[in-house]
Design a protein around this nucleic acid. Structure first.
Length: 898
RNA sequence: GCCGACAUGGCGGAAUGGUAGACGCGAUGGUCUCAAAAACCAUUGUCCGAAAGGGCGUGCGGGUUCGAGUCCCGCUGUCGGCACCA
């Protein structure tokens, strides 16, 4: 190292500064947030002031460690948290770990290492990598979902759901005791079917390749597991379910009360899939056939009916002549999976031989069986209106069935009987008219259906929360009492569920806990003396812990309650009447739009109904971050080659070509991953540039919600910026401070206060990329003007503090301040310095810029017009034509129209 | 098929209906150096021009406006969600 490197802001110096400040922050508890009560309260703190509760989506501690894409959101939330703290808020920001998960279990299966040991090691590694980033977290509030103390409350919440039912009249959950009282019985056969957590024998998604069942949300449109991409089959099994469908309306309606990105709200609405329509009964020889339709206004156009092959009335409706045809059709349909049915694009179906009566006009219409009608939605039977529905039209054409025109433009035609006429009405009016008629005549009712299914909650895995449930001698589920929680996982000889060939349809789930006989069969005294019970051997899905963890950050060590009322209300309670409450900012990827965010909202609402929270929604404001993507390169054989060894050459035409070891390679764009040989780690960035440079680079790459490619060679730009800042404060040769007490010149004052104003607005809007650009401009101005006055350096350091906190602290200290700047006030622009004496005025002719004038800020329209017309270039553009109009937006713009 | 988002230099990106391309990377030229790296300075949308200046330019085609990357209508492409949902 040469002499003058000694005081330069190099990676080595950055590392020294950064680690020193990280140690000091930890020692001083700089980022501790004060609670209203409990162990994290501080009686000496006085008024707590306004709170700001900030959250990142729970990470899963992967064994592979972090790559540079992972910290993007954590850096962003840290910038927000530090900024809010400097605005005087009491900021709650911590990070826990979603630590149950398939990778640890798979690792355990292959190595025999306990998943807990492996998971805890991964958490330790991740904590180390993240600490080096300098995140301002309250580390006292960190936890993992596998901590017995956390599992205890996850199980407690499960029992809240088990011990509650949904009252459709009040549209809320109520204690099950109130249902027992209302029904006048405690018979499990009656009561258990109403619980919010209930066991049912129902069709579930069985995935032999994973050896477990899956929730609907975990199955892709292609009928495969979202995790692992294994085939999924429908099996009827006894499993735990959560009655999330009871909350369909509130889950949709309350989306309007939260501050979330529209696309996410839309995805949730579509997933819940509420559609308004009517149930209509069609008389038939086998009794009424009930259909669901969203278009009752087209009833007069119903020319046939279609039942799903699984519909219970098919047998009764099939005439002897058609029996063989129908039986054969149903057999073929049954042999097909859902995916195969959908893959078949052309519609098939057969006549039952019976007819049904269209209630609006008494017409006898044929009843058919076809597999494009699904048993799982609506009633499994439809009225077919070829004039309105494309599928019905296609089917009618295949079978030569008639079409009656009932829709002309946006009005209804050919639709009247002796009682009612829809002719000439709009679709909406026709719907309400016909529903009223159906209800008075007893042929049907207006109704609403949902696409959402109940949440399948059992998994046949080892590494998850055990259910706090035992079964008695009648096989009825009994809650394990509160004082026996948590129910801990037993040690097992083998962590794997029985897995099968991925396409083995006949396989049956077999959870690993079922093999630990002495754990499964227990003697407990549940109030009526010691008795034999059998434990539930399924475990909860990974979503359990993440469905309520926001509450625990607010009161992480509370042994008596999930969260104390005062702590919950302070951190999460609504801040205006009618508000939902919830976390002030929740940042994470859009891939959780449906799964995690729907489950968490559901549990939070149940806890609200039962009086455990004052907030109705867990996350008031949601922000979806983009991803850091990367290029990967393949050689002629399609094998990935190390991305950091690929050389790029750009032709004169601007077309890049890529070579590795002289061989041409192909570039592809996507994720970062070990197998793609394109991983860049934060550790490499710390070594080469330091954490502050890495943070500034990630934040400057583009808007937070947009994905963008990683480019290591561009990181140096952020380092050069921080080096220029450093040089404003420190002499690189002597290490001495160069800061002066000089007064700022007018130009610098104006640049400084414009920067303060602009950066403040950008920080509020989470536009860190443009905030950084403005700070660079200020720094470049100070460098060029050779201004090193304290009056400029102090606000620069304060504005830099959320983004590059270690460097900012170091400068702050060198300016003579004793304490951390974590709570120093964020700079505020002085309006007096925002106004300029002269401004740039753009002169346009026909909307095209022809001159730029330096004019007095208070110039009048007349003065500006005169000045503009006096410009030679403007006169040349006017070219002797008559000036028809002059538009003046004083003092910045003059547009001359000829 | 339905719903949604996006489209700007060689690259990442910036622009309350008012100077398109801030800021950064890269590239080119220079300072320093025996030399190189680093750092610093300058130039950098494109075409014509020595310059002054001018033409063209925000995926494509129209429109509104004194003025459109921005607003409206119609396309194309890329990405995401849902998908025989009655």
């Amino acid at each position: 190292m040469s002499e003058n490197q000694g005081f330069r802001y190099t990676a080595a110096l950055a590392a020294e500064i950064e680690q020193r400040w990280q140690d000091r922050w930890e020692a001083e508890g700089t980022f501790h947030a004060v609670n209203p009560e409990g162990d994290l309260a501080d009686p000496t703190a006085g008024e707590l002031g306004e709170k700001y509760f900030l959250m990142d989506m729970f990470p899963y501690p992967s064994g592979a460690g972090l790559h540079v894409g992972h910290p993007l959101g954590y850096i962003a939330t840290d910038v927000v948290g530090r900024h809010q703290r400097m605005l005087g808020k009491n900021v709650l920001h911590a990070l826990g770990y979603d630590a149950y998960g398939l990778p640890a279990e798979i690792h355990a299966i292959s190595t025999g290492e306990h998943p807990r040991d492996n998971t805890l090691a991964n958490i330790a590694n991740m904590r180390r990598q993240l600490r080096r980033l300098g995140l301002g977290h309250d580390e006292r509030r960190s936890f993992a979902t596998i901590d017995p103390d956390f599992v205890r409350w996850t199980q407690w919440i499960f029992l809240q759901l088990f011990n509650a039912w949904f009252d459709p009249e009040q549209q809320k959950a109520r204690p099950i005791a109130e249902l027992v009282e209302k029904m006048g019985t405690s018979d499990p056969a009656v009561i258990d079917t109403h619980r919010l957590a209930y066991v049912s024998e129902s069709p579930v998604n069985w995935c032999p390749g994973l050896g477990t069942v899956l929730a609907n949300e975990e199955v892709t449109a292609e009928g495969r597991s979202e995790r692992g991409n294994f085939p999924v089959f429908t099996r009827s099994l006894r499993q735990w379910n959560m009655r999330i469908t009871a909350y369909s309306d509130r889950l949709i309606d309350d989306l309007e009360r939260v501050d979330w990105p529209e696309p996410v709200k839309l995805m949730q609405r579509n997933w819940i899939g509420r559609s308004h329509g009517a149930h209509v009964d069609f008389a038939s020889p086998a009794g009424p056939i009930r259909v669901f339709t969203t278009r009752p206004d087209t009833l007069f156009g119903a020319t046939f009916m279609v039942l799903s092959p699984e519909h219970p009335l098919v047998d009764a409706l099939t005439t002897p002549e058609q029996a063989e045809t129908v039986a054969a059709y149903r057999e073929t349909a049954a042999a097909k999976t859902d995916v195969e049915r959908q893959a078949d694009k052309h519609k098939t179906g057969v006549l039952t031989g019976s007819t049904a009566t269209n209630p609006v006009n008494g017409e006898q219409i044929p009843v058919l069986v076809a597999d494009y009608v699904l048993m799982g939605y609506g009633t499994g039977a439809i009225m077919a209106v070829p004039d309105g529905d494309a599928r019905d039209a296609e089917f009618a054409e295949v079978l030569g069935l008639p079409t009656v025109e009932v829709i002309a433009g946006d009005t209804i035609v050919n639709s009247s009987n002796d009682d009612v006429s829809l002719d000439g009405l709009s679709v909406d009016d026709a719907k309400s008219t016909i529903i009223a008629w159906l209800e008075t005549s007893g042929h049907g009712t207006g109704t609403t259906t949902y696409r959402l299914r109940d949440w399948l909650f059992s998994r046949q895995r080892y590494w998850g929360e055990p259910f706090p449930i035992v079964y008695d001698e009648h096989d009825n589920p009994i809650a394990v009492p509160d004082h026996m929680l948590p129910v801990e996982l037993p040690e097992v000889p083998d962590y794997s569920p029985r897995t099968f060939a991925p396409d083995d349809v006949t396989s049956e789930p077999e959870p690993p806990l079922g093999r630990v006989d002495e754990w499964v069969h227990v003697t407990l005294d549940l109030g009526d003396g010691p008795k034999q019970y059998r434990r539930e051997t399924n475990t909860m899905p990974n979503w359990a812990g993440s469905s309520w963890y926001e509450l625990r950050y607010a009161d992480p060590h509370n042994g008596d309650e999930l969260v104390s009322a005062a702590n919950e209300e302070y951190w999460l309670g609504p801040r205006e009447t009618g508000g939902t409450g919830g976390v002030d900012l929740y940042v994470g990827g859009v891939e959780h739009a449906v799964l995690h965010l729907l489950y968490a909202r559901f549990w939070h609402k149940v806890l609200f109904d039962l009086g455990h929270t004052s907030s109705e929604e867990p996350f008031h404001r949601l922000f979806n971050q983009g991803y850091i993507q990367a290029y990967a390169f393949t050689d002629a054989r399609g094998t990935y080659v190390p991305a950091d060894e690929v050389e790029e050459t750009v032709s004169d035409a601007g077309v890049p070509t890529f070579t590795w070891n002289g061989e041409p390679v192909d570039r592809e764009y996507g994720k970062m991953g070990k197998s793609l040989k394109n991983v860049v780690t934060p550790d490499e960035m710390y070594d080469a540039y330091g954490a502050d440079t890495f943070r500034v680079y990630e934040m400057s790459m583009g808007p937070l919600d947009v994905s963008r490619p990683w480019e290591t060679r561009a990181v140096v730009g952020s380092q050069r910026f921080l080096q220029r800042v450093w040089r404003l404060v420190v002499d690189e040769e002597t290490g001495e401070s160069v800061v002066t007490d000089a007064e700022l010149d007018a130009a610098t004052l104006r640049v400084l206060h414009r920067t303060i104003e602009g950066v403040a607005a950008d920080m509020d809007g989470l536009r860190f990329n443009t905030a950084i650009a403005k700070l660079i401009e200020l720094t470049n101005h100070l460098t060029k003007a050779e201004v090193t006055a304290r009056a400029a350096i102090e606000p620069l350091a304060l504005m830099l503090a959320p983004l590059a906190p270690h460097l900012a602290e170091e400068i702050w200290a060198r300016l003579g301040h004793e304490g951390s700047l974590a709570r120093a006030p964020y700079p505020v622009a002085d309006p007096a310095h925002l106004v300029a004496d002269t401004v740039l005025c753009i002169v346009q002719v026909q909307g095209k810029v022809r001159a730029k004038l330096d004019v007095a800020a208070d110039a009048t329209e007349e003065q500006l017009t005169e000045l503009a017309l006096g410009e030679a270039n403007v006169q040349r553009a006017i070219d002797g034509r008559e000036v028809r109009k002059v538009i003046v937006k004083a003092p910045k713009l003059v547009n001359i129209v000829v």
